[in-house]
């Protein structure tokens, strides 16, 4: 029996890896992958918690949440890849440092 805190730790690590990827990587595709890793963390957490609500019972509601969240992630990724594609066609690069026409 693996403790729930183990899953919590793994989810936190996944989330941090995704955030690290988002902050440090310069390639748009890598940023999108980081985003996906980030949104995988809560899904793991939902599944882990669903088995821990009551002994011997798995809450099916959380599985519904996870499936819906995965579908929404797919839609987000679709928009992201489309934007990356438009940016690539225009600049011939996927490096975000080249997209510097915006002032902060």
């Amino acid at each position: 029996m693996i403790q729930i805190s183990f899953y919590l730790g793994v989810a936190a690590i996944l989330f941090s890896i995704g955030l690290y990827c988002l902050v440090t990587k310069r390639n748009i595709i890598r940023i999108l992958i980081g985003l996906e890793i980030m949104s995988a963390a809560p899904n793991l957490l939902f599944i882990a918690f669903s088995a821990n609500q009551a002994s011997g019972l798995i809450d099916p509601l959380a599985h519904g949440f996870v499936i819906t969240a995965i579908i929404i992630d797919g839609a987000i990724l679709g928009v992201g890849i489309a934007l990356a594609l438009i940016a690539y066609r225009r600049y011939k690069t996927l490096d975000v440092r080249e997209l510097r026409r915006l002032r902060w």
């Binding site: 963390a41 821990n52 987000i76 992201g80």
Partner: peptide, 17 residues
Amino acid sequence: SSSGSATYLFSIALIYG
């Protein structure tokens, strides 16, 4: 904004747990 959404999902996963 989508990293914000992932953060929100993490947060409600904690509330659910």
